[in-house]
Design a protein around this nucleic acid. Structure first.
Lengths: 156, 156
DNA sequence: CCAGCAATCTTGACTCGTTCAAGAAAAGCG
DNA sequence: CGCTTTTCTTGAACGAGTCAAGATTGCTGG
């Protein structure tokens, strides 16, 4: 639950990115640290636990600039809203549950930069390869086994 | 521009998937064939060129069932709306332009099923690995070179 | 070839994540 | 300690996608 990144660390991160240090920004960073892969709404709720006066727009703005500055990473699996995480810099990937949307970190087996070498990129200048693993999370796997009958399951 | 898939082929595809053959569905299939990676709005416009009376809801429904049945593939890069393509069955990937959203097909260099072997999936049962290459398309690369001064460039 | 059922489509309202805009607040500089 | 610029608040708006109810239409069996 708790983490070792100190308040001062966050302050350094912000200053290092030429961003002003504000209460909303620190609160957002703390929220994202506590809730990896949280969507904007969850971040907003978490932020307001410590800073009740922060507007939803501020959270959108903050997450936006933090993502642009590379302090947080924004992920957005198909069919899901935007989610955020603090873990940046290491090219890791994500497993997404098709039924509940749960996200888990996955270190690429191949090592750093998985299959960044695409054969023919049609002239595109590629700077990043993102891998998303689709499947079923442990919780949903169990549910499925139990209520085997459920018809409408696969996609949607 | 034109394609070799005949009307009869589409009919077979639909019947094979236990789907009724309707004018809207055939029109959607033709539209997706003509416009690979088109979003729903573009598909709607294309459909109405031949079937003016088709509702937007019908297009959503049709694209939905076609995707569920595996007759079309739905892709949705972060920050983009849903896009569709006919090319299914071969595990190919996509290059997405960060500046204009253009999408191009990319055959994975590693062969079939790229890095589907994730090291630790935290108990997730993975059934698919999706790779998205992020970069700049040829057109946008050229633009960038020309107007080198542009400051706000990177993301967004 | 036609009746009947179920799947599909039309119409129109509505949700929800996200963005836009304008003015108030506060961070950091000199 | 003011000033300038960034950041935040407030409140409205946008747009992709969804929901719901009733009208149509595809397909099956007689």
């Amino acid at each position: 639950m708790d983490d070792h990144t100190t308040e001062a660390d966050f302050e350094h991160l912000l200053r290092g990115a030429d961003l002003r240090v504000t209460r909303p920004r620190l609160a957002v960073l703390r929220a994202v640290r506590r809730h990896p892969h949280a969507d904007t709404g969850s971040v907003l709720v978490a932020v307001r636990l410590e800073e009740p006066a922060v507007s939803h727009q501020a959270v959108y703005d903050v997450l936006g600039v933090l993502a642009e500055s590379g302090l947080v990473r924004r992920i957005q699996p198909a069919g899901s809203v935007a989610r955020y995480e603090l873990r940046v810099g290491d090219n890791h990937h994500h497993a997404v549950c098709r039924s509940c949307g749960e996200v888990a970190d996955v270190d690429c087996a191949v090592g750093v930069r998985p299959c960044l070498d695409a054969s023919d990129t049609h002239g595109f200048v590629i700077d990043e390869a993102e891998v998303t693993y689709w499947g079923t999370c442990p919780a949903c796997s169990t549910d499925r086994t139990r209520s085997q009958s459920s018809t409408t399951e696969g996609t949607r």
